[in-house]
Amino acid sequence: MRFVIALVSAALAASVIVSAAPASDAPDPAADAEAFRNYFVTKFPKVKLEDFVNGPYSMNKDMRRQWQEKEEFPPYEFALEAGKEMFAAPFKNGKTYADCFENGGIGVRQNFPYFDAKQGEVITLELALNRCRTANGEAPLSYVKDEMASLTAYMAFTSRGKPFDIKIPDDPRALAAYENGKRYFYTRRGQLNFSCASCHVQSPGERLRAEILAPALGILNAMPIYRSEWAGMGTISRRFITCNSQTRAVPEEAQSEDYRDLEYFLSYVSNGLPISGPGARP
């Protein structure tokens, strides 16, 4: 009998160890977001939390001064106007973008991306806009060109100041998408062996040639952005593709599952920080 008890005890102890091990690796987005925020707040104690959305301008006084002057006549203004017109213009069937979104698409940017339980995938704002177009018989827009950037610029502008409110529903597929985005963010790739985190976690505020690297916290809040380097507007898709190319990795297709999941992860960990887009960057 004593032997049986000993065996049962040993088996129980073993099962506790076995079941405890995966628990430590179980996805915990809320804990991730807290740790993410704490990392940046500790690293940059002088930067106010809501200021992280201003990217390199929160890290460098001189750049901040230049930006503040630039904001008097912001370079994204033309895109904003164009986006407003495009948003209101009816499709051939008479409907508009407003028909595809909650609240007519006004002040909803902070809720994107979201996990669509019906389709089992992450829906970004760019994807939702193109799906709206195709559902209404229009050709989809390029994810990396001016028209998409103009539309998202206008929608972001109507959400300015509203905090990111990304939800991860209690759905294993949503958690898997979040985890995949996290994996993508921390994975090194390209001949230069860089991950997204190499620049935007390990080195924000540092110079990479002429650029000052932005912190990952709040990095998507300012999207889309006018970049002087591009001499034009850029969407989140364009940003991801360019980042990959800069590490000499073959980029994925715009709005690939990996990129959408990456956007989901990055937006979630910036929950609570205000939308500041459209933005302007050097």
Partner: peptide, 23 residues
């Protein structure tokens, strides 16, 4: 040689990315 290096990178990063994670 370059392609083989990228394979080594992808294989190594399969789990190694977790070491860089903010916790």
């Amino acid at each position: 040689a370059l392609a083989r290096a990228s394979i080594v990178q992808a294989t190594g990063e399969k789990d190694r990315w977790k070491d860089a994670e903010i916790r």
